[in-house]
Nucleic acid binder design. Structure first.
Lengths: 136, 136
DNA sequence: TATTGTTATACTCTATAACTATA
DNA sequence: TATAGTTATAGAGTATAACAATA
């Protein structure tokens, strides 16, 4: 009965995947949301906190906390914008870029392990079905 | 980059599915975990709180809070066990059984809406792939 | 007036550890 | 001693609302 509900399966799968994520990158102590933020900053250096927030689908106040954490670890930096003195350009530090590269390796390994029970074409299928679920 | 990571897609899909769940059963104010608990109790009347907890993969203390909430709404009841005075037999009340039946209809509708973008055989595929993800 | 970043606050979910009463 | 239920507490995650500085 519960097993026929997509939300229930999504949650159970996510719990398991999350546990493997923590086991994999636990030593670095970078949360999934922090990894997502670092990836987005790495691909869009100089973006504002509000842009980061809307990209991640969270509130602006959440981006503040996220950047606070990354800044506290020396992984990201707030650079005052020269065109708009209300905003910061968010950048990865050198340490942040190095750490992100290492994280990407670890997360790729984690992703492979977590989907090890699926064949190559099944992984593609799963990703495509999930994508359609949240893109309509 | 993020879109290639199964954990990221799972989370994004789950957020969307959760929002639709809240919109669907919002008026009843029954959380997903509470619905799961009610479903399990309905299928296994008289089970103990510890059994419920292990079935749901949560801590015993979490089951206490869950049953407290259901009891507070008059949906479930703790019946003292006659064979082991440490335990309670957890039951749905009549109101709980009625509410569960209504919830199941609403959740089925919610599940259909959320997977409306998929064809019938794609829904089966998604459920099967998710199941294999957390069953190995 | 509107927007950016910020803070304070609160709420949900969940885990851990210690307690009690029973076994 | 081991287990069931309970409580207190703490942590992560996120949202809301209000504020100052700037546009």
């Amino acid at each position: 009965m519960l097993d026929d509900i997509v939300g229930y399966r999504l949650r159970r799968a996510q719990v398991l995947v999350y546990q493997d994520y923590v086991r994999t990158v636990g030593s670095l102590d970078i949360r999934p949301a922090q990894f997502a933020a670092m990836t987005i900053i790495g691909a869009n250096p100089g973006l504002s906190q509000t842009t980061l927030a809307t990209t991640m689908g969270i509130d602006r106040s959440g981006a503040v906390i996220l950047i606070d954490a990354l800044e506290g670890k020396g992984l990201a930096a707030r650079v005052p914008s020269k065109v708009d003195r209300r905003t910061y350009a968010i950048m990865l530090t050198d340490k942040g870029a190095t750490t992100l590269a290492e994280l990407k390796r670890m997360v790729a390994e984690h992703d492979n392990r977590v989907t090890a029970c699926l064949g190559p074409e099944e992984r593609v299928q799963l990703n495509s079905l999930l994508l359609r679920l949240y893109q309509g």
